[in-house]
Design a binder for these strands. Structure first.
Lengths: 113, 113
DNA sequence: CATAGTGCTATAGATTGTCAAGCATTTCAC
DNA sequence: GTGAAATGCTTGACAATCTATAGCACTATG
């Protein structure tokens, strides 16, 4: 997966794309821009991501310093995921996508089967 | 994949994310921002994407009106892929990612080997 | 005339993501 | 106080997605 990165030496853009391109990552960040969420709450808000994938994504995002996890209580389980500064900064990216999407993806009907 | 979209009615951002999140898509667009490319040329510039996936991505991008394909000659084979206006507009997105990446992904060493 | 190049496609295999169920515990409705 | 629902996940089997490798038809270069 990062084989090509070797050729490119190190390219932050290339790396950034690789991070953001994983399924659900941008959806998760977008949801968290509205404020911190618990696990199931986040799952519902994102819509469609199953817990296994969600766990994995959150772990990676945490390792990258994009999301921070806070355990309020173990029993009953209470956790919350929030964006760090790096995570908040992704708002620019989401906004760019938003702008682009509104302008160039106007109709979902296009592929009307 | 689009199951959640049903709940969200229709959300351009959601859709846009789904398009851009597919592996190699953003890399392909980024490469094409430097100008049109032939198939193998593009493949090499992107670095790491195999022809089967590349073909599939290019077909989808073409259907979405992001990329345009021009066949200059069948034999010897000469084709070129270029960004349409919608594709060029993705430069804003790539730039946002670039800015973010440079600021928040400074070291690749983090996940040392 | 062999080698390398063009733009792909095909088949099989590896990686990644999904579905469904379930655990331990508390809280809320009844 | 008993049953249902919720919390934050984990597990294991399965499906979708992506990759590796090889190859085709053909030309241009040496």
């Amino acid at each position: 997966m990062t084989r090509a990165a070797e050729d490119h030496a190190f390219c932050p853009v290339y790396e950034a794309i690789n991070v953001l391109q994983e399924k659900w990552t941008l959806h998760i960040v977008r949801t968290l821009l509205d404020g911190p969420r618990g696990f199931n709450e986040l799952s519902r808000a994102v819509g469609g991501c199953n817990p296994a994938t969600l766990t994995q994504r959150l772990e990676r995002l945490e390792r990258l310093g994009i999301v921070s996890k806070t355990i309020h209580s173990t029993m009953p389980p209470r956790t919350s995921y929030a964006l760090t500064e790096a995570g908040q900064a992704l708002q620019q990216v989401i906004e760019a996508i938003d702008t682009w999407g509104r302008k160039y993806l106007p109709e979902p009907v296009a592929a009307a089967h």
